[in-house]
Nucleic acid binder design. Structure first.
Lengths: 189, 189
DNA sequence: AGTGTAGGCCAACGGGTGTTGGCAATAACT
DNA sequence: AGTTATTGCCAACACCCGTTGGCCTACACT
């Protein structure tokens, strides 16, 4: 029952194929049969190692964002650092596809949505700073802008957003995040 | 073949049920059988009136945003007006569900994504103003923020965003849109 | 070298899907 | 009133899904 090292290669192949399929097709259209075919093994192997399609999904999106600690930075540059880190994360995600999996699936699958909520509640909320009582609201506003960028750039592929190079996108979006980080929330920034 | 008024009630019931199902479950999990059951008719009627599941979907999301003309407004208030209109649109959408349908499906369905792209290219792009050559980029940045809000508030239901009342949300997001509308794109607004 | 256990495949089950053709009833038109 | 065409339902087709159990194979351990 506790799987040995002998099958590790197979299990990793399943995970990699699952991430690609989930990312490309979303939870519902990604089939275990197709994932197994990509991994070059039998569909029943997926069941043996991950129990069910949901179990496979949970294993495929087991991830941490690894957000930077903003407290050491000059206040004026935190927005830029946060946006750049977020974009770098997504650019690097093209190989594994974990983040795309999460966002795509969270839209149709309630379990994935719950996972995304807790990720942002814990990780983003913690980085923003536990100080002010409107911290959670600020974190959520930042999430709305960053997720909106990810949605338009990596999922919907809106040409104008997808075509921008990372530097220009950081320069455009950083002031917004900077505003959500510190300015009074109803000011005309 | 050209359907008469006699079946109009049925066709409308199908459309209403389809919008709810597509909005709640997304394109893939929404089944014609369930939609037909909600509408109180036989699944084959859906095929007769809309040809296929894709045809039904196309009919269900046939919509225009009806965005306001910003040119007559004082420059400083355009962001607020745009955000408020967008939010009002989504709040009113709870009944029909067209916008939720579109966003939810665009994430997993390529045809829906294309439809969303053209909607924003034509309608939002036109409102922003055909003047500057970076107009499309500005429109796309606005789309990223507004779609991000819709995603977090109406689809993912991030508590901090979903709990805000409309006025507070407008006050928080309007400066961002205002910035994308007019300020130099790399300024720390 | 013999034995147990994990790896892997095959075949199948039960259920749900979009879609189709035919048949009864009912409304509309001449 | 008689004919026609539209409405609606029923039953079925063909396909694909997630999942299961049984059967060889080959490694690992004593």
């Amino acid at each position: 029952m506790p799987f040995t090292q002998r099958s590790e290669e197979t299990r990793n192949a399943i995970l990699a194929a699952a991430r690609r399929r989930f990312a490309d097709d979303g939870y519902e259209r990604a089939t275990i049969r197709a994932i197994a075919a990509d991994a070059g093994i039998d569909p029943s192997m997926v069941m043996r190692y991950y129990g069910s399609k949901e179990g496979l999904f949970a294993a495929a999106v087991d991830v941490v964002l690894g957000l930077p600690d903003l407290r050491g930075l000059p206040a004026g540059r935190r927005g830029e650092v946060l946006v750049r880190h977020f974009l770098t994360l997504w650019e690097g995600d093209r190989a594994s596809g974990v983040l795309t999996v999460l966002l795509r699936s969270a839209v149709t699958n309630e379990a994935a949505a719950e996972r995304m909520r807790t990720i942002f509640a814990t990780q983003v909320g913690a980085v923003i700073g536990p100080a002010a009582d409107d911290g959670p609201t600020r974190a959520a506003l930042i999430a709305s802008q960053l997720l909106g960028v990810a949605l338009c750039r990596y999922v919907l592929r809106l040409p104008e957003i997808a075509a921008l190079d990372a530097d220009a996108l950081v320069a455009s979006v950083a002031p917004t995040v900077q505003h959500y980080l510190g300015d009074p929330l109803d000011s005309a920034g």
